[in-house]
Each structure stands twice: as structure tokens, then as C-alpha cells.
Nucleic acid binder design. Structure first.
Lengths: 201, 201, 201, 201
DNA sequence: TATGAATGAGCATTCATTCAT
DNA sequence: TATGAATGAATGCTCATTCAT
């Protein structure tokens, strides 16, 4: 329709396509084996174009990971929003995360790749992100403690514990083919977090 | 005692030295960036010698990882042994694992590298190993349930939960420089596993 | 005209240059000792470029050999064409081959290298090529037999005999420095083929 | 029987075994791919022992080739001996060579390997040997010329021609699986050498 | 701006040779 | 003398990045 013989796209659209391609390629091949050429191919652009949008392979990876983290965060926020009860907000947020990882197992791979390849570069993006979001969750825990529903443990400890449990569940989800998907395990996992395994405690 | 160019040692000693060097190099550089030459250098041998003992880089890595798993397993067994109470056995075993990872953070790196690089090759050694040890732990959980001390949840669920928590704690331990070492977090983590975070549950 | 580091040329020109370099390097060093880097150097390109045009060292060698065979074949065809007499066609064709090998002794080396290195891979290209050209030569022999000028031997035997003689002459040409060049031996060799060494036969 | 616990062999026996092994390995794998270790294995000795008997791989190869040449020469001499007619001596000698190559195709491979790998080192052993034997054959040709049975061509030319034909036949014998064995082609080849292919010449 | 041809550093692996035992 | 463990030079191939077009 337009006069453009070359189906020009807006830079943003290009970037989005590139990131989507990058997520898949990095997840499928792993960071080191991933070929920038393949990302370009899947995005339908030349290899050089990738370097117009990203400064290098590493930058591309980080951008791809960041994009996934953005989506994850958005999902969790959406899920929390409609609830007024802090515990429900917590439960819904985590369940949304589980659902997201089920839908986008590539993201899990990206976490692992980042951890494996950029070990030296300080805090992984995934952790940095969850750290930066802690201030949003802390009040929920405090409210639960104040209202006498949650044990009077340090908020940091409570969040660390939940973080570990979630991180462990997510990371090990891919590992064993026999395991059910994450959301199916959610209730069980969250139940243990809330009530522990002992009786009459 | 001369700095013999053709130093001869017993095969076992050589293999041990090579594995120790490999563990460090793989942990420091990551599997892909690790240079076989560097492993040889650190072990004080020629590069060709590495290939006398291992069929290739991959074999070297697996052997290194397996060795660490052997040590970990031994530590956990030792720790469990002296206790008669199942809960104490559990506690001691896990604590021993935490202590091991504190002492040998390289091992954590090796787990991550395996997960990242050999993703396609089925179950990672780490998971395979913990799976194969589950039959040793299951009776402890059953005993605790039967004796009415533990909630009547499926043993698999109980073990999965603990596994996730431990895996998460270990994996995230390295990530944040600010965090205390693992053993220092142990009581807290195990407490949450046992009692949960809610009050009057 | 600057000594551009990223010199761009047409693919055909590049390929031609690479093949010319490959012919020389393989002939001088032998297949195994030939270093792909040296081929690249002589062609004035980076090593990676070689792999853009050929899938590997072996492919490069085969392409180089094939190119030489193409030229040889062209020379022989040219030489035969202008003659109407079958015997003259034969004589001219073979003489052209001898002249070609004098001009391009590298080609002889390539034949030898192929025979030596790819012994397992079935018929060498050189033989495959001469086999495939036999159908063009057979009618000449038949015509000579029918016209009563050539002995009534099986055409295959006649061609085999000539082939052996030519192959032997070419292969041994390089061997002894003292020998005259091939074309200078041609009349003698062809004379023996035609008339044998005995008198009054 | 002897008191020797270690079945010591005489150095000569060792050397013979090593050479036999070397002939086979070099012929099967080609000079470059041949592994000194494999020669040692087949001879039932340690790798180091090979180096006690030969200064290196090259020396080993030359010794192996020389040994084969010795046998070939002996065969040809034996075959010539009983005949008084020069032409019969020639015929029997060449036929014996053909038979030898049929029995020991490894030898052909060795010739090719030498030609391919030691291109720079002047005259190949095979040629050197046939050169050095020319003085034995020359008188036969002279006698045939003098007696009026052979054409009055330069003896060198006659020998070159025969050499080329034999060399060509032998070298191409291995190449095409479809061809009959050498001795079966002998009469045909020798017939062409003697009488040529033209009629009424 | 978009492209993809060209580049070359980087690395696993082999194997002839050496030499401690 | 015989051994085989140890050595390290040598080399094919990949792929992130650059840049001429």
C-alpha cells in the first residue's frame, strides 16, 4: 500500500523482533553456542543490523533477559493488584510468576545462562531485579506480621526464604522431565512456605 | 628433586591433581571459557597429559563434577550417621551440605555450568545424584510422618520442597555478595521449612 | 586503492584466487602439511574467508584438483578438434596433456596427493575423470581398427595401455631431475605405443 | 625351554617384526595418519622400542620401503635367472614384478606414500633403485638390438618406455576396483610394449 | 540505514619424540 | 635394554565483530 518498496519498520518494531528472536536462540542454544547470525536470520534482518541496535552479543543478551524480566514483573503486578489482602497479594503474585515460567520456559534458560556466563559481572540481572522490587513486597510482610498472622521473623529472612523456594522450584522445574508443570506444584510449594512440614508447630 | 621436565607420578596422584585443577578452572572461567591448557598449567603438566587421563574437555568436566558430588555425598552421610533421630539426621545432613558449599563454592559453579552447557544431555549429574539418593531419605520422612511429627503430605512433595529450598539457597548464595554464608543462614532456612512463616497454623 | 583491510571482490574472483593459491600450496607442501593459513595468506585474505568459500580443507583440495582437471580437459579437447584423422587427434590430445603437465607440474603433485590421502574414498577424481572421458576416445580407436590401421585388440585394452604409459610417464617425470621435460619425451613414448620395440613384428 | 623369562628376541628378529608391522600400517593408514604407536602395538613392543631401532618415523618408513624393494628385486632376479634368451629374461622379470605387486599391494601404497610425502627429498627410493638396476638391464636390451630383434632405439628410451608402462600399470592397478589383477593384464601390457598398437608397422 | 563479506583471535585435540624408570 | 608416561608444537575450524558498499 505504502510506496515503500522496502518494508521499513520502525526501529522499535525491529528491536522487538530482534529481542524475541534473541530470547529463543539464547534459550535453545545457550549463550555461547548461540550464533548472532541465527538471531539475525530469525528476525529477518542482516547480521550487521543486529549491531546497529545492540552493541554486541552481550548487550543483546542482557536486553533480551531484561525484556523477559519486564514481562514477568508486569505479570506479577497485575496479579497482585486486584487483591486487598496481603497474603492473597503474595499468593497471586508468586502464582503468576510460576505461570509465567510455565508459559515461557525460555526465560528460565536465560536466567541460567546469565548465571553461568556472567558470573564475574556482579549481581545477575534476575537478582538485581528481585532486590529492587523488595521494597514493594516488604510492606506486605510487615503488614502480615503486625496483624499477627505471620511469625515475627526479620522481613529479609521471610523474603529470602520465599525467594529461595521459588528460585529452587523454577530452576529445578526444567531439569526433571517427570515433574508436573510449575503452577501445578504451586499450592504444594506455597503451602510448605506458609505452614512448614511439621505438625503442631 | 630436580624440576624434571618429565616428572612421573602415580596415575592416581596425577588424576587427583588434574581434577583439582579442573574444578578450579571450570569454576573460575566457566566451562566454555576454560582453557584445557590452563588446567594443564595449574596441574603442572603438559597439555597432552590431560588427554592421557581424560578423553576430552567434556569428560574432564564430568569427572571433576562427579568428584565434587562424591565428596558432598560423603560429607552428608558422615553428618547423618551419628544421629538416631530422623529429624536430626535430616538437619545434620542438610547443614553439612550447606557447610560443604561454603567451603567449596566452586562446586556451585560447576552445577551451574553443567546445567547451562549440557542442558540437552538429559538430567544433570547433580539431579541424577540427588534422585538416586532419594531412596535413602524417603524412610526418614516416612518415619517422621508415622510418628506424628510431620504432616501427612506425600513424601515426594516433602522432598521436593526441601530440595527446592536448598537448591534455591545454594544457587542464590553466590549471587549476592552481601549475603551471609550459607551455614549462617541454615537455621533460618530450615526453620521456615519445618514451621512455615504463618502463625498458629 | 588503499590497502583496505576489508577488501571486497566479486565472489568469482575470490574463488579463483583462492583456488590458485590452494593449488600451489597443496603442491608445494603436500595435502597434510599444507596450512590453510598459508593458502589464505597467499590469496591475500583472512583465514575465515577460506571457509566462506569452501567447507573445509578437503573441499578446498578437491575444488583445486577439479579446476586443474577442467583445464587439462579443455586443453586436450582444443588440441584434438582441428584434426580429422583419428590418429592425429589421439596424438595431439596426448601431446597437449604432456604439455599441460610440463606447464603445470603442480597438477601432477595434486594427483599424487589425492591418491595418497584419499585412498579410501573410492576412485580418485583423476581416474573418475579419465573414465568418464573414455566414451569420447573409444570411437577413435574403433575407427582406427575398422580402417585397418590399428590392431584388432579390445578397445579397453588399447586405452588401458595408453593410459598406463601416459600415467607412468607423467608420474615419473617429476621424479628424476635429469629427465627431459615431458613434451620432449612425447614422440618417443608415443612411438613405442604405436610401433612397439620389436623389429619386424 | 631357555631360562629366559622374558622371551628376548634377537635385534634382527625384532627389526624384522617391526618392519613387517610398519609396512602394513603405513600402507593401511598412509604415512601421515600412520601412528607409531600402532606399529609398536602390532609388533608387540613398546613405543620407545621403535625408537631404539629406528631414528624416527621417517627412518622407519624408509626402512620398510627398502625392505619391500629388496624383496621385489630378489623376485625379479630369481625370475630372470633361469632364462638364457634376453627377451625371456625381460618378460619373466617384469611378470615377476607384476606378481609381486599382486601379492603385496601394500608395496604399491608405500611407493605412493613416499612419492607424496618426501617429494622434496630428491629421487624417491623406488626410482633410485630402478636407476641403480638399469646397468643390469641395459645389456639385455643391447643384445636384443644387436641381434636385430629389437628396434635400434636408444637403450635409455627403451628402458624409460618400459618403466613408464610398468609404473603406470602398477599405480593404476589399485585405483580401479573393476580391473583384473596385474598378472592377468601382463601379457596384454607386455604385448603392446613389444609390438605396439598399429598394424603393419 | 541496512547488508553480509571479510576478518582473525581463540581453542580442542593429535601424535612424534623424549626420557625416567 | 625395554617401556610407556609425559610432552608441546602444530593446525583445522568457528564466530563475534567490523566496515565497504
Amino acid at each position: 500500500m505504502s510506496q515503500a518498496r522496502y518494508a521499513r519498520k520502525t526501529p522499535d518494531a525491529r528491536k522487538t523482533e530482534l529481542l524475541a528472536a534473541a530470547v529463543m536462540v539464547f534459550a535453545e542454544r545457550g549463550y555461547r553456542s548461540a550464533d548472532v547470525q541465527e538471531v539475525a536470520d530469525r528476525a529477518g534482518v542482516g547480521k550487521g543490523t543486529v549491531y546497529r541496535y545492540f552493541s554486541g552479543k552481550e548487550d543483546l543478551f542482557c536486553a533480551a533477559l531484561t525484556k523477559q524480566l519486564d514481562v514477568l514483573e508486569a505479570r506479577m503486578c497485575e496479579a497482585r493488584d486486584p487483591h486487598s489482602d496481603p497474603l492473597e497479594r503474595l499468593r497471586s503474585g508468586i502464582r503468576a510468576a510460576f505461570a509465567f515460567f510455565d508459559e515461557h520456559p525460555e526465560t528460565v534458560e536465560l536466567f541460567i545462562q546469565e548465571r553461568a556466563e556472567f558470573r564475574d559481572r556482579g549481581i545477575p540481572l534476575y537478582f538485581a531485579r528481585s532486590m529492587s522490587r523488595r521494597h514493594e513486597w516488604a510492606p506486605e510482610f510487615e503488614a502480615l506480621i503486625v496483624s499477627g498472622r505471620m511469625r515475627k521473623l526479620p522481613v529479609e529472612a521471610l523474603m529470602d526464604g520465599l525467594g529461595d523456594l521459588v528460585y529452587g522450584a523454577v530452576m529445578s522445574s526444567e531439569a526433571s522431565a517427570g515433574r508436573p508443570c510449575l503452577v501445578d506444584r504451586f499450592d504444594q510449594v506455597f503451602d510448605i512456605y506458609l505452614h512448614g512440614v511439621l505438625l503442631g508447630s
